[in-house]
Design a protein around this nucleic acid. Structure first.
Lengths: 187, 187, 187, 187
DNA sequence: AATGAATGAGCCTTCATTCAT
DNA sequence: AATGAATGAAGGCTCATTCAT
């Protein structure tokens, strides 16, 4: 596992970028990101070839982290229960990491994120797609394109996250309402 | 007595901005926008004080156009029918104006759009909110926050639009599927 | 006397320029000057071909006004008395027109004022030079270059004016002190 | 460890600015100054935050250099001799550095030079003021405001410098004439 | 003649990237 | 590898001047 240079610093830069993007948007100077990470501006470029490269890597890293919750689901449970488990993990991550979520949102609409990166991001949702496949079986959406379904799920999840972040006191309630709205869509 | 400020030119700039934003993102140089509009770069600033101002006005203009479809609904029809009518108009606008939709998406996440502009944008959806209020009555979402509901509707609509734009051949079918998924959420 | 266009407006622009130059310096936009004069920015250029032209004409106009006081001196009086009379008129003009004085100061150092304009400005002091010629006769400066003498006189006068403007309450006293200092130089 | 910020370059920029200001005035583009200094336009801004900052620092630097001559006067000499010594040093600097003098003149009237900078510039003349105080004792100007006196001295000195620069062949003679005229003012 | 919109060159400054140390 | 100075292209905006009305 030959990881050249300090992985600590690489991560520090990625985390700094997340924070700075939320505050200043994607036009944030690399110098600001570097300063926030506690490294010299030039050092940023020993870890990431270009600013675009940094953004693409960050996008993937965040997507990956977000998808991690989709692992280790209770296998023998009912589909709905499995899905709800996943949903909760997801929502939990969202309110625990509001900045990362916002950064993903910004990066998602950027034209700096290459199609390749986007595709890689989608792959991480493969597990979820499997589950979704089983969840819609026999329901009214059994013939709908999987891509569309994933998009719908994502959009409902995003809306729910937004709302939870805005009203954290009732986060749990909103999470449940969101899930049930989604489930009604499927069944 | 002098050459009057032409509304045509103003609109040409707004339309040019829409096109350029889709192609190059919000970082598109004002000079490119001006050239695309067929005016000198300096002229852009006689119509819009700053680039930010241009973006805010464009955002509103697009939102307004998008909301126009929500008017003149068949009043005596059933709620579901009224809503479907609205939905179709909306989707229709979306596939007819894919660039405008993308531009809105870009502008929405920009930190250049002021809260005031955003608020004004929301107001235009008031009609829809009324209809939504009646649509959810008696259903499982009767106690959910209106803000949340609007967000959910938007997100489902957006996902549907995206999908329709990607697969225009089956646009009508996707539109219907999207609407029904949404309606199931409400009832 | 075919004076085309309105002389009123020409003067309004010159006066506006004086005021604006004092406030904003020579880099003041022509548009600001025009607005201050109550005319459209384009109109300024029907009265003055270029900004540089405006500045040159203004310089001359102000110099001329300043030199006007040097006329109509009491011919049969003693030289010193004549000179003092001139001096007082001059100082009086200065404290009555502080803005014009400041404008001249700004214009004098500008590289936009052509040598021709400067030369014309000097000519207006011819009267004074005559008087100065007689004043220095037999004194210690009888062999000094006239140009130098004029420069010295000017510089002492300017310093006096500055001081009078700063402390208008004792203007008269300062005027006298300045004159006597100058006279001591000559005799 | 990185290339250290070089004082040489800072000075090169200041000197370049001096030359360019003389030729083109204060509106000279920073890019021209940078090129004249042999650095990239961007580099100018690592040494001076803004163009205004550059001008203020240059003003002070020049004033300081000019005032340096006022040091190390022959302490036990007569006042007049001390003053003449100072005067000669001053005039000498002036004809040796005609560009610096012109640059100071331009900067002095600029509204970009802050009051703070001006005040700092004045402080450097403190030594001279002391000497002037002794020089005017018992003379006709013993009750005149010190500020006025300094202004008078400056104005006579400036006029003398101008004349010396114009006719360098007789520089020494003009210098003496200027000084004696000034001294006559005081005594 | 008067107006003010149209033009486009120009300027200060920023910033991604490179490079000397 | 790390640092931060050096580079220079680029961009938003200004403004003198021109021109259609």
């Amino acid at each position: 596992m030959p990881r050249p240079r300090s992985d600590e610093k690489r991560i520090a830069i990625l985390e700094a970028a997340t924070r700075v993007i939320v505050k200043q948007g994607l036009s944030a100077p690399t110098m600001v990101i570097a300063k926030e990470a506690g490294v010299a501006n030039g050092s940023l470029f020993t870890y990431f070839e270009t600013k675009t490269d940094l953004f693409n890597q960050l996008f993937l890293e965040l997507k990956m982290e977000m998808a991690t919750g989709a692992m280790n689901l209770p296998v023998d449970a009912e589909v709905r229960e499995q899905f709800f488990h996943l949903w909760k993990k997801w929502m939990n991550w969202a309110i625990s990491n509001p900045e990362k979520r916002r950064a993903i949102a910004q990066l998602s609409v950027s034209d700096e994120i290459t199609p390749v990166t986007r595709a890689a991001g989608h792959k991480m949702m493969a597990h979820v797609a499997d589950l979704l496949e089983r969840a819609r079986a026999h329901g009214p959406m059994q013939k709908v394109s999987m891509v569309f379904l994933v998009a719908l799920m994502n959009s409902v999840a995003e809306a729910t996250m937004d709302f939870m972040t805005q009203d954290p006191a009732n986060a749990k309630k909103h999470s449940k309402e969101g899930f049930e709205a989604f489930w009604r869509m499927l069944n």
